[in-house]
Design a protein around this nucleic acid. Structure first.
Lengths: 240, 240
DNA sequence: GCAGCGATTAACCATCTGGTGAGTTAACCC
DNA sequence: GGGTTAACTCACCAGATGGTTAATCGCTGC
């Protein structure tokens, strides 16, 4: 499809079989992601995954060993995706408050756009995170977010804009919680309260609300007694 | 066990069979709740549920028709529980801010104490809420929370303590999101960031943080430019 | 042109699993 | 005490499902 792809991504349809390990692996993973996200680990069917691609069911066992092996590979793939996109955010040029806002907006948009990721994480939690816990790769992968948040928090504290009793992990939890819930609990929440969380107006409103709540919290203790803050706040709103 | 229970809750162990429809239903539901919460709809095994109680597997079909029927009954039970406890909160005697705080703390504590509820809701979301959508009972059941929140919001607006652009459903979402996530994503979050969200200190800190963030948001726009608020705030903190 | 090997296919299997048919027991009513 | 019915038990099944055996294909090096 793309010229960067080595020899050929799409087999010329005349030839029925064309060994291409990389491509097969990719196809399996893509099919697995869909199926697992849709039905969960136990609800997913190996035969359905096999049917979703050109290759045979046997290939799944050839490459991934077992259903759980495939599931874990899917998890790793999906977690890898978000973190690698996250890296590209430029935050150093922003004020601490704006940097937090930027991260919130990124998280919000990414999770909104990737319900499969949310579903897979929910599913993994139903299994008590036991697969994820087995994977070294994943445990290390995620620390980068925390480090970035920590940097921003420290800058914010130094400038007097932020309070000092909230650590980066708490902050990350707050951000994730809001963004995640809107997607993960979309269906029950929507059905129970008769609202559509996917509607664009809701989306926009919630995004603003979440930002305000979290940035407000970070600024709150500081803003009550620190003379530097009103000026900062004015500067910030002028800049937007 | 209790004297209010009609004839006997526990069969005198000598007699092997003693028809008691109500008790059997209850036992099935209790077993189902455990099993479904633990393994999800497709992961749960009818045979395991049957094995967890004194009665036979056939009884499940006798009373609930199918696996999905039993699952729906479980959902209804579990949602009914939380809402009925919620009704008992006395909020009218509190200031709007304190009433919101009270609801947040209740939600936080309840969800913390009932992980099965959280798991079942997560599971139902994996199934796109399609079972819940079928149940009239559940769709009506939940409106009471919204009405109560609406009352509080209106009181808060009238007194100038709250801003006016946040509706009760948004507020409920904010509250649920925070509280829910801490429990639902406990495992992945814990594994990824090496922290234990069940630890008592974490629990206490998060509870305070969530309260501050949400109440802060509600008060924020009002507090910036409304002269009534500083007084109110002082009164409130004196009262605690 | 053939040995070696990774990639791939198709048929097959043991077991699990939701669901049921048919009969049994206890209580209640007349 | 006989008939009716709700509550209950037991054995069984058909299809689904994760996983496997064994054979084949096509490329690479010689």
């Amino acid at each position: 499809m793309l010229p960067t792809q080595p020899p050929e991504t799409e087999a010329p349809s005349g030839r029925p079989r064309k060994p291409d390990a990389e491509r097969t692996r990719r196809e399996i993973l893509a099919a697995a992601r869909q199926e697992f996200a849709e039905h969960g680990l136990s609800g997913a069917r190996i035969d359905t995954i096999a049917a979703r691609m050109r290759t045979n069911k046997r290939m799944i066992y050839y490459y991934f060993g077992s259903k759980e092996g495939l599931y874990l590979a899917t998890l790793e793939q999906v977690y890898g995706d978000i973190r690698s996109v996250e890296q590209e955010l430029d935050l150093d040029s922003l004020t601490p408050s704006d940097a937090v806002r930027r991260i919130i907006e990124f998280t919000f948009d990414y999770q909104e756009a990737h319900p499969d990721f949310i579903r897979l994480v929910s599913i993994e939690n139903i299994h008590n995170g036991k697969h994820l816990a087995q994977s070294e790769r994943l445990r290390n992968l995620n620390m980068s977010v925390i480090q970035r948040l920590d940097g921003i928090l420290q800058r914010g504290r130094r400038s007097g804009a932020f309070r000092s009793d909230i650590d980066p992990i708490d902050l990350h939890m707050l951000i994730s919680a809001f963004c995640f819930f809107r997607v993960s609990n979309r269906h029950t929440f929507g059905a129970l309260f008769g609202c559509d969380l996917t509607a664009p107006e809701q989306r926009k409103k919630h995004k603003r609300m979440i930002s305000e709540a979290i940035v407000g919290l970070l600024e709150s203790a500081a803003s009550a007694c620190n003379p530097a803050t009103p000026a900062l706040r004015r500067a910030r709103s002028a800049g937007r």
